[in-house]
Design a protein around this nucleic acid. Structure first.
Lengths: 349, 349
DNA sequence: ATCCTCTCCGAAACAGTTTCGACGTACCCA
DNA sequence: TGGGTACGTCGAAACTGTTTCGGAGAGGAT
């Protein structure tokens, strides 16, 4: 039986590994299940082979539906994330599928990729939210046959990976046009992290709106935040301390908008009388802020539902219908924006 | 029922079921896995037997750790929930355990209990958050041998079910004492849903603080909200429209506090000059509200971590150490509370 | 040397899944 | 009506993986 080397390439079975490692099948099984009674040397040898063949819980398990989908966030510290989660969970509830939530932490000491965690509880598919995707991770997923859908990818995903997002560019455009229509000409903008696709799209929309209106784009009025309160507060403060203080700020996200609120409040500036603010996301809090926030609605829950839907089809073996879906954004006007005051604090011109 | 009860407890194997149903073992396997090629009549017969013996993925699997814990929320529509989730997820990440999130929906058409959903992907344990727990559900869990930990139970759980909460009573007391110390005497309160334990505890604390200060408790100043923005807005509006308008409101939750903000703003009342507001929870937004919210910190993430920790011990078969843990709350003073104005009920201009 | 103990491993029994072919029935067509 | 075809249903056998249990061998104590 040892004469045929083809044996091992055809199927990755415990017996094959056992033969190659020169041990018996039960011993390999014990290694896989972390049983104690295996000598360290033997364990290491088997594990190395296991890893070489990247054995994934049995080739036959490949067709077993576990009824579980993994939802991986890049940080779980935003109400933003819950909205996505709600959408995915709703889909899961109506399709008898569990949703396992996890968060990758960039600053974490353990550089272990989230893909390794997936192996412990076998998952039917993965939805990755605003996270980077390395080639190695992709390779792991592919070899394990686990479908993947990305929401708001930070870097453009490979063509065979479907992604779901919102019309961020159009949203940035509409937000800025709204401010322009109110008479504002000095409009600041706070982007998200510079490497997020959705962030640059929004700022591009902002710039296009300015240019279409014949207002020159001033790079000094654009800052990069972190999409959180802190970033909005710090960057917003910088903008408000500028000699030519903007009369309006496109905050890039709702949370940043609230940071801007606070920066304005601390400087004795009123919203919207002295400063108009537009957010992005339409978190539930936006309607309840003081004053209620004018913002760009992004159908977060629906994005989650859509991604889950696509993933479900992929899990069922359906072919990929579309590789990229962008759900439309919408301007929601509330009370944080107003026409530019007759005598705003004019910058010296 | 004709067979000995010991028999089915000792060994519920597919082969036994097959023999009893008069079919072969593979056929039973197909039924369990939902394979299509089984005649409806046969399937029904086998399923009935399966249910009678309540076969649960093999008796040997009983000791198999799936590395998955279920976190069941009563509605997922609050930033409150994410904080809990974060705590549980953190624990899961460091204990190579996945966290499956689901939400029960009270108004849902499908009255199917969440416990049935648990059966699909076998779970090591359940953390239930602010939800009711029927005896039937408890029975299902017990018979399946799935440990349970409850966070903020709505009704007092049975003595053998551990629960985690916060010192709600003390929080309500401290919040109210803070307002009393600022000179307020007409203090409104907005509770959560009347049947929530945490809600009544907070209001009891509020009442005790009043009584200890020699201020008479006026039931007309207490309203029942829903812990959400809407409730705070509606009930807060009612309080503010009272003839003897309160000069301070203990909002019962941060979200209700923001609802009160909006109710006050619509009436031209300023916070804190005309109205002091205290929240409860210390959601991340509280620090970024306009004005920043004075609130009672509830260590939500730590509550999640603690519950997960307890559940982990239970899963490992450790004995129950304590049946009830209350983590301490803490007053965080920001800018939404101020000393009572000299002429409280007048609009300053 | 002898005995004991403890670690490590595999033979065998066990549990469950999948493949594949047999059997019977229903349906279609001449 | 008869023959052929298609399909649904089921089980024998082969397969994958898990657990138990006993035995070989190393090392230590006497």
């Amino acid at each position: 039986m040892a004469s045929l080397p083809q044996e091992r390439r055809s199927r990755t079975t415990l017996a094959a590994i056992a033969a190659e490692a020169g041990v018996s099948l039960p011993t390999v099984s014990k290694v896989v299940n972390g049983r104690p009674d295996v000598a360290p040397a033997t364990r290491a040898r088997v594990e190395r082979l296991l890893h070489e063949h990247n054995y994934s819980r049995g080739a036959l398990r490949r067709h077993h539906r576990s009824g579980l989908v993994d939802l991986v966030f890049n940080g779980l510290d935003s109400p933003w994330a819950v909205e996505i989660l709600r959408g995915v969970e709703e889909w899961g509830a109506t399709h008898s599928t569990g949703v396992a939530v996890s968060a990758v932490r960039h600053g974490d000491a353990r550089p272990a990729s989230w893909t390794s965690a997936l192996a412990s509880h076998d998952t039917d598919g993965v939805i990755l939210v605003t996270s980077e995707l390395t080639g190695a991770q992709l390779g792991q997923l592919r070899s394990a046959g686990i479908p993947l859908v990305v929401i708001d990818p930070v870097n453009p995903p490979p063509p065979d990976i479907p992604s779901v997002g919102a019309t961020n560019w159009a949203g940035g455009l509409v937000a800025t046009e709204h401010l322009l229509a109110l008479g504002h000409r000095l409009i600041g903008a706070i982007a998200g992290p510079g490497d997020y696709l959705c962030s640059v799209a929004r700022i591009d929309g902002y710039r296009s709106a300015l240019e279409r209106a014949g207002v020159s784009f001033d790079p000094g009025l654009v800052r990069h935040g972190d999409f959180h309160h802190e970033g909005g507060f710090a960057r917003g403060g910088e903008l408000l301390d500028l000699p030519g203080r903007p009369t309006a700020i496109f905050a890039g996200s709702d949370q940043q908008a609230f940071g801007v609120y606070e920066a304005a409040r601390q400087r004795g500036l009123r919203v919207p009388e002295d400063l108009s603010v537009v957010g992005f996301d339409e978190l539930p809090v936006a309607r309840w802020a003081s004053p209620p926030l004018t913002t760009i609605r992004q159908p977060l829950a629906e994005m989650g539902r859509t991604a889950a839907q696509m993933l479900g089809e992929l899990v069922d073996g359906a072919p990929l219908r579309s590789t990229r879906i962008e759900l439309s954004t919408e301007l929601i006007v509330r009370e944080s924006t107003a026409a530019r005051a007759a005598r705003p604090s004019q910058h010296p011109s």
